[in-house]
Simulated scan of single mutants.
Amino acid sequence: MSKPAIGVGLIGSGFMGRSHSLAYLNVDKLFELPFRVELRMLADQTEAQASRAADAFGFARATGDWRELVADSRIEVVSITTPNRLHKDMALAAIDAGKHVWCEKPLAPTLADARIMAEAARHRGVRTAVGFNYLKNPMMRLARDMIAGGEIGEVRTFRGIHAEDFMADVSQPWSWRLDPANGGGALVDIGSHIIAAARYLLGPIVEVDGRTDTLVTSRPIAAGAAERRTVAVDDVTTARLRFRSGVVGTIEANWLATGRTMQHAFEIAGSAGSIAFSQERFNELQLYCAGDEAARRGFRTIVAGPEHEPYGAFCVAPGHQIGFNDLKAIEARDFLLSIADDAPRHAGLGHAGLGHAGFDEGVAVLEVVDAIYRSARDGGQPVAIGVSAQ
């Protein structure tokens, strides 16, 4: 018997738009889903741009007006992969039309906007997802299971960083990422990932203090241009964290980290051992056991394999590795399963045991971001986190 189809619309065809497309193309070939995925429409800034992307990505139709996509009754799922400042209007329109929404992070430029989006989804009863794709790594699930199982004892400290170098070159032109209308700089753009990881692994963050620094204070208005534009967002942000469990920690968000293309990394120390991870080698997890014989102590490497669900859907052999777009396929699976599931709607990290991040999680992460920025503006004074992060 043929499965029913679920129609997908995509707004935006850049890096993340391509990744969403690949995820949708592969998800029902890799995983058992109750429906087949059909790529029905792609929207971009112009009709020509949308048509080129639709042909490349496998969408049936294209439009230069995202509102046309949202209004189409044949589309049940909308992916939003545009700059942050556009997320709110697009998501609210899709939600109002009864569509399920997968939105890239951060959910919105401001905490207030994110709350409006989450409440709209909750009221309309649609399913949501936020693009915290690094949470989908089987090694992240393993780390969380090991922590919950007491394998490193009582957790004491967390050290996390998300560092890249895509803004390290001072000749890099001013772009939408530097527009304060998008909610901030390195912290909200890439730091939101390490905040999401910290919450996934160790639970709610209840207090922060932070510092922001803008080190490249102006950028060329275009490649090679002499005219420059002021940069008014953070290049580097650091913060101290306190978790509800009593664990203390630090995070750094840095897009000037020369030589680092994806240092999404953490180390968690407990009374009986430690866990260390870096996205630069994301098919590996490092484990230190304090109970080992003194002459044999040291971090050991656990290599991803079919035993670490859902690695086996991609490869039957351990150590052969999965990649970035595979994480997006897992994210698509969890989002689509949340649509098919009859569990309470608008679930957050606990949904169906999958670690699915809905709009509520997007709000919780932005509560931490907002608190860090407020602390930095107030000279690093501690700021308590609001109730949504609990």
Rank of each mutant, 00 (worst) to 15 (best):
G191E: 12
A222N: 02
A232F: 10
D189F: 15
A239P: 03
R240V: 00
V236H: 11
H193T: 03
V208E: 04
S218A: 14
G224N: 11
A232E: 15
G185T: 14
D189C: 11
I205S: 07
H193Q: 13
W174N: 00
R229Q: 12
I190H: 09
L178S: 01
G210F: 06
R177S: 04
P204E: 09
A186F: 14
N182S: 08
G224L: 09
G246I: 03
A226Y: 04
R228H: 11
A197Q: 13
L178G: 00
V216R: 01
L241V: 02
R240M: 03
R244C: 01
R199P: 00
P180H: 10
V206E: 12
G185E: 14
A232M: 14
I194P: 04
S175I: 01
T212W: 07
R211H: 15
A181D: 11
T238G: 09
P204I: 07
R199N: 06
T212M: 13
L201I: 08
R211F: 09
V231P: 00
W174M: 01
N182A: 04
V233F: 12
I195M: 07
A232P: 01
D189I: 15
R229V: 04
S175Y: 02
V236K: 02
N182H: 07
A232K: 15
T230R: 14
R177E: 04
D234T: 14
D209Q: 11
D179H: 08
A223D: 05
S245E: 04
R229P: 00
A198N: 08
F243N: 03
R228N: 04
L202W: 03
T230I: 05
A196D: 10
P204F: 09
A197P: 00
R177T: 07
V216M: 13
G191A: 13
Y200C: 05
A181G: 05
P220A: 04
G224A: 07
V231K: 00
L187D: 00
E227Q: 12
D213Y: 14
A225S: 08
R228S: 05
R199F: 05
I194V: 15
P180K: 08
L178T: 03
D179K: 08
A196F: 08
P204C: 10
A198L: 07
I190R: 01
D213N: 15
A222S: 13
I205T: 01
D179E: 09
P220F: 06
V206P: 01
Y200T: 02
L201V: 08
T214H: 13
A232I: 06
